[in-house]
Design a protein around this nucleic acid. Structure first.
Lengths: 229, 229
DNA sequence: AGCCAATAAATTGTCGACAATCCAACTTGA
DNA sequence: TCAAGTTGGATTGTCGACAATTTATTGGCT
């Protein structure tokens, strides 16, 4: 049976990996559930060969854990892992902001200011409703990361870590997050970058992510997500 | 034909992945060379199934690059990639040192001091000959990383990034590195950790890695390794 | 009834073969 | 002679089937 969106990729394995990633991030495959190879193979209409390659890839992304002769399981979001992941984000995205402060071209900076204005306008028009910027080119963090100019850093953050990060963003109904505060922090970071103040940019980015993780922590501890074993 | 060391693992795929990793890191499979599936399958005495899974894993480790319908190639070490990778290391190991400054237990700190004394004695006895600490438990950096207590950080640094880092360490005959200077820096970092000075520990670790990368850069630019296309 | 051993079913790991794609050598025509 | 098209060989991608291992079920014993 065909699944939702069918992204035509060069190889079946890539295709399946992409679809599985989405399915897990969006919760269509529940956390902690077992990955049954025969079942999924039938579901996606492929043989187990490419499916297994996709699962190996997902293991590398940290979306599933595998045990020899037993199989793969979708990871379980929990507070400690979230904190650990976000601490890594602090280090990496802080560095990205620092690098961006010296390498980001003026027009890209202006384009980012325009994006923040757009976010501002959206908040004004929709009474502070959260702006969904999942992974697209409108995502402030992704823009900063790309501006770092560090290919390895970009790959790590956008291709290997972001799936899990998006999962945390999505599965915690972060109603207690304050979009206007986040926007102010984004603006402060961008100001530091525009002024080529690498130290400050890194500091602010770290603080920004640290604050987000604290909010997520509270949300997880008070929501059903965390308690659902 | 059996290859060198045969680490018995639960599954053939893991086994092959391990052996291939070693072969690439140690240069038995040369940089930039094509990975021929039929050839390797025959060489290791396995079918292409588990071999392909291993290659997918290696791609995740950044040891090979794959192109659809074309195949996999061993990466080419080059100065820019090295600098990018070491910048990430700065961010991540800097954070690890910071965390270690608050979480590292006293006995582990003492044990690390003892290790540094051992390194010192080795230098004294062998007229500054380089101490080979490739990946073992005698590796100062690995000890700090583990002391961070951040499981995600540990996994990323020790399981995903270290293969490439070891490759850089090994393939550049870093004769111009000064082991005594490195030892002094290690000691300063450990002092900061022992005093629970997280900020300082991070700063020193960053500086230490940055300095190492500069030395590596010079070594690569002046050695045949970098010019050998 | 409850627990342990033996057996059956299902799942994972591995293999060899076929299909699709790419690459190199060769032919053909201007 | 050179360029483009064609054909043959080799390699990668995919599949279905078998072997090995785990998990569930059944039966027997205390």
């Amino acid at each position: 049976m065909n699944n939702l969106i069918s992204i035509k990729s060069a190889t079946l394995s890539e295709d399946i990996a992409q679809q599985l990633t989405n399915a897990i991030v969006q919760g269509h495959i529940p956390q902690g559930s077992k990955i049954s190879e025969p079942e999924l193979a039938k579901q996606y209409g492929v043989s187990r060969g490419p499916l297994r390659e996709a699962i190996v890839k997902l293991e590398g992304l940290g979306l599933v854990t595998r045990t020899a002769n037993v199989g793969a399981r979708v990871i379980q979001l929990n507070t400690q892992d979230m904190l650990d992941t976000f601490t890594m984000r602090e280090a990496l995205e802080g560095m990205a902001a620092r690098l961006a402060a010296t390498t980001m071209p003026a027009d890209e900076i202006n384009s980012l200011y325009a994006l923040l204005d757009k976010h501002q306008a959206h908040l004004d028009a929709n009474q502070d409703e959260h702006y969904v910027q999942q992974g697209g080119n409108d995502d402030f963090h992704l823009r900063i990361i790309h501006a770092s100019g560090n290919a390895k850093l970009i790959r790590l953050l956008t291709e290997e870590l972001y799936a899990v990060i998006r999962m945390y963003r999505r599965h915690t109904s972060d109603q207690r997050s304050d979009p206007r505060q986040a926007l102010r922090e984004h603006k402060a970071i961008l100001d530091a970058i525009a002024n080529h103040e690498g130290d400050l940019a890194e500091l602010l980015m770290r603080r920004h992510i640290s604050r987000a993780s604290q909010l997520l922590k509270q949300a997880m501890e008070h929501s059903s997500v965390a308690s659902r074993i």
